[in-house]
Design a protein around this nucleic acid. Structure first.
Lengths: 107, 107
DNA sequence: GCATTAATTCCATAATATTCGAAATATGGA
DNA sequence: TCCATATTTCGAATATTATGGAATTAATGC
């Protein structure tokens, strides 16, 4: 993952509304969610939600698929994994370090 | 980790200079680094570097320790791990998901 | 074609973050 | 005490980002 992409992804997640949207999609899994249901869950005006979904999309953290009148958004787990990996890459100059990463999931 | 703390941490990492500073400290490991050497490595004016170090400190991602005339900054690996864990927590509603996290280190 | 539902784009306003020179503070040694 | 080195704080200009109502685009069925 390139530095630019990492910064885009971090910026995308550095906002309460977007973090909540992303977490909602991470928890939702393969089924994803539509803007309508997300707006209901998080009590966001449609225009505001749309702005944030575009940011997350642009950052590559989520994907979009049309299904009739609805759009379905889904978390991009590969991108999330790449982001996490970037932070720890080359940690401690490769020396052994033994604090557990404590990831609750292997998505 | 609380949502507020996650947002602070993400905001801190959502900037090229801070991401570079943090990565430098992650790679440096327990030895850490002083503002002087960081400024040299990244070609940053002292005032600018200081501003960013304060942000990272405030976000809990790094620690500070005085040693004579120098300050030593170090990555906080526990906080980094907690941040990574927050993103994946409750992923896919707990269903099995098998894409590897691809973390290169267990700090 | 027209009405209906779903979602996005436009736009003006408001709020927040970034930069870095110059001045201030802290430490240790002569 | 006084000087040199290390680092931070101040401050003011600049740039970026977020909000949400109203208008617009897209898809479906009658």
């Amino acid at each position: 993952m390139e530095e630019d992409a990492v910064i885009k992804a971090m910026s995308a997640l550095a906002h309460a509304n977007r973090l909540r949207i992303f977490r909602l999609l991470v928890v939702a899994g393969g089924a994803g969610a539509t803007p309508g249901t997300i707006a209901d869950s998080l009590a966001l005006p449609a225009a505001t939600l749309s702005f944030h979904l575009k940011e997350l999309l642009n950052a590559g953290l989520i994907g979009q698929q049309r299904q009739g009148r609805n759009l379905i958004y889904r978390a991009d787990y590969a991108q999330m994994g790449a982001l996490l990996a970037y932070l720890t890459d080359n940690c401690c100059q490769g020396e052994a370090c033994d604090q557990p990463a404590a990831l609750s999931c292997q998505c």
